[in-house]
Structures are given as structure tokens and as C-alpha cells.
Design a protein around this nucleic acid. Structure first.
Lengths: 203, 203
DNA sequence: TGTGAAATTGACCGAGCGGTCAAGTTGTAC
DNA sequence: GTACAACTTGACCGCTCGGTCAATTTCACA
């Protein structure tokens, strides 16, 4: 490895450096989503950005580390979005509803990321990151389900199981919107919310 | 291409030939699921089966065609399983219930295929096959939803939208079971059915 | 037993991969 | 102006990939 490789997290980047790095990141996401991770070579990426190959390895330790960074950043962004959507709500069912809406909306507006997520489930190298994300996401949801049960708003049941079902609805609908390139309309969001909440009440 | 390549669908295969082909197919599925499609080379496959490289290309025109065949076969098998599960039932809701159970059970017991399906959504070359499968699957389900609406068993709603939600529940739960290597227990199946059917009734 | 199709081998090919690095340029702090 | 770190270049490397093919063996059947 070069003396000052991209390994260290605390690398000093100039303004120009940060811009270059962001450009490489966003372009990689786009190409990975369009062409697939493996079929997109590092040479494709640097050519698309218009720089030499060494630039890629100045900012990222490897192609693999780049995808892992994309996945980690995305999980963080989704959680932040969800949290922002429900932080002011007290009612557990209202929190669930706004969480569902936020998840689907986020997925629909991050179609590229959704494709990378689907791919990442299929290879050991990346699926660990995905499992962690799912565990966190389901735990977040299950907490609200448990609160709803405790308050007698819905019948007793296994909160994790129910949260998994809810994630199924939001994931699939989000995935479909992302793949088809359609936005999350109110009609879609309302249907998803009804399906989940009535499902919970009936369980 | 060789004079008698694998291109023709009506190739005459001896009993030994069919066995060899099946062996290559099943071993490829296993390796693709374990290691990912791209990281698994044709050399890996033939080495695992214990034959020369030419044998692979005697039975399959390309690595890509092999995966497409796996995907097509699997869609057929799933549909056959679903159809067998509900062909004797008249009540649309009972048909939906048994379809849901069959889908999840099939996914849980075909974990390898589920991994390949997830991957295939992420590359243009294969996602066409996936979209077709989803369209067919949702149309199958929507038909029963429409029947239930017509009979007044559930409130009016967009059958395709509702069928998409149901597919979301079955897909996600099936996927989770497959990834974790767990079987589809009655408890899981019951929860999924309740979530879907109560969701429909509330919509 | 002879014959042709089916099946098999594995060395070989051109291409492209992820990644390296010596050399050079740019930016900035004193 | 000078010194040093940040940044950039692109030729190059070793390797593996999907795929080919001439030569050979196996087998079903006449």
C-alpha cells in the first residue's frame, strides 16, 4: 500500500479533495445500480469521472470498501429520516404510521441504493452489513409495536414477528417503486399504512 | 460454436447425459447461492463436479443462460406448487390463505433459489426475468382479491395494490426464513396469514 | 463387431479485472 | 521562495475470467 493510502479514516482532505471524493461516490452508486457491482469496473468509474485510476485508490482503499461505505451511509441516512418523521409523536400507532410512510418514501427516492441493497444480500462480503441493518430496523419497529400492545391498542402478539411483517410490506412496496422508477404517491402510502395497521389490529 | 452445441432445446441426451446435466445444474445453484454468481467461475463449477471445462459448454450455451434457466424453472415450480395448494378451494379468501402459506413454505425450503432471485433483481441481464415473474405472481393473487371484492368478503380497493402488499409480506418473510436457514413453522405461517387477511378486510 | 453420435478432455486464447507505483503537478503555510 | 503534503497520472502487473476446440473416449444400436 502507498505511504498515505485511503485506509485511515481521519485523512485530511482539501475542499477540492472532498468534492472529488463525493463525485466518485455518487458516480459509483449510479453505475453500480445501472450495471451491477461486478460488471462495473474501477476503470469504468474513473473514466466516467474523468480522472486517472490512481485517484480512485487515493480516496478509497478498494472497490469493496467503497460499496461497504455506501451501504453504511445509506443505513444511517434512512434511520435519520425515519427518526425525523416520528420524533414529535407520542402515539405508538402514529409513530408506526409515520415510520412506514418515511420508509417507503425514502426507498422510492433512493432507487439506486435499493438496487445495491438487493445485490448486497446475495454475497457474503456484504450481507453481514445488510443483516445488521435489518436487525436494527426491525428492532426499531418492534419497540413501537410493543408499546402499542402495552397500551392495549392492538392485541398481544410477538412484536418481532409483527415488525418483520411490516418491514415486508414497506420493503416490497418501496422496492417495487424503486425498480419501476415511480414516486411514492399518497394512494400507495395510504394503502400500505392501512394494510399494516389493520393487520396489526386483527392479529 | 461447436457443430452440436447446447443451443438447441431438443438435444438428444442419453440417461447419463441427463444425469450429468442435472448434476451441473444443482451444483451451480448451490455454488451461486453460497458464493454469488460472479465470484463463482465456470472453472469452480466443473472442478466441483469433477469434469473438464468443455462438459459445461456441452450442456449449457453460457454461464448466463444457465442462470436464466434456473430462474425460469424456479418460477414454474413455485407456480405449480401454489396452484396445487389451492386448486380444490372455492372461497377466494381460502385460496389466498393457502397461496400465502404455499409461497412462504416454498421460499423457506428453497433458500438457494431465493438468494439467486435477490441477485437477479440487481442486473439488467436477469431482472427482466424477475419482473415477469413478479407480474405473473401479483396477477395470480390479484385475481383472488378481485373475487373476494366481488363477493363482498372484503371492502373495495385496488386489487393489484393489495396483491402487491401481500406479496410483500410473503416475500419478506420467505426471504428472512431462507437467509436464516429456518423452516416455515405454523406460527410464522399463521402470523403472515393473519396480517394479510386482516389487512385486506380493513382496507 | 463396426459405426456414428454423444460425451469428454484440458491446453489454450484474448480480454479485462483489481490494484500498484514511480513520477510529476498543484496547493498552501511559513 | 521553499518545503512539504495533497493530489494526479497512466503504464504496468499478475491473475482470472468466460469461452473455444481439436483430439479422444464412451456408448447405443445395427
Amino acid at each position: 500500500m502507498p505511504a498515505s493510502s485511503a485506509k485511515s479514516a481521519e485523512r485530511r482532505l482539501t475542499a477540492r479533495g472532498k468534492e472529488r471524493r463525493d463525485h466518485l461516490l455518487s458516480y459509483s452508486i449510479k453505475r453500480f445500480a445501472e450495471n451491477g457491482y461486478h460488471p462495473t469496473s474501477v476503470a469504468d468509474i474513473v473514466e466516467g469521472v474523468g480522472v486517472g485510476k490512481g485517484v480512485f485508490y487515493w480516496y478509497f482503499p478498494s472497490k469493496e470498501a467503497l460499496l461497504l461505505e455506501i451501504l453504511g451511509d445509506s443505513l444511517l441516512d434512512l434511520r435519520r429520516t425515519q427518526h425525523a418523521a416520528l420524533r414529535d409523536l407520542d402515539d405508538p400507532l402514529a409513530r408506526l404510521e409515520h415510520g412506514i410512510r418515511a420508509s417507503i418514501t425514502w426507498a422510492a427516492s433512493h432507487a439506486d441504493i435499493m438496487r445495491l441493497v438487493m445485490f448486497s444480500w446475495t454475497e457474503e462480503t456484504f450481507s453481514g452489513s445488510m443483516k445488521k441493518g435489518r436487525r436494527i430496523n426491525i428492532a426499531d419497529t418492534a419497540k413501537h409495536v410493543q408499546d402499542a400492545i402495552d397500551l392495549g391498542l392492538i392485541p398481544t402478539g410477538d412484536p418481532t414477528m409483527l415488525a418483520t411483517g411490516i418491514r415486508g410490506v414497506t420493503d416490497e412496496i418501496g422496492r417495487q417503486l424503486a425498480i419501476d422508477g415511480e414516486p411514492a404517491t399518497d394512494e400507495v402510502l395510504d394503502s400500505a399504512v392501512r394494510l399494516c395497521l389493520y393487520g396489526l389490529k386483527g392479529s
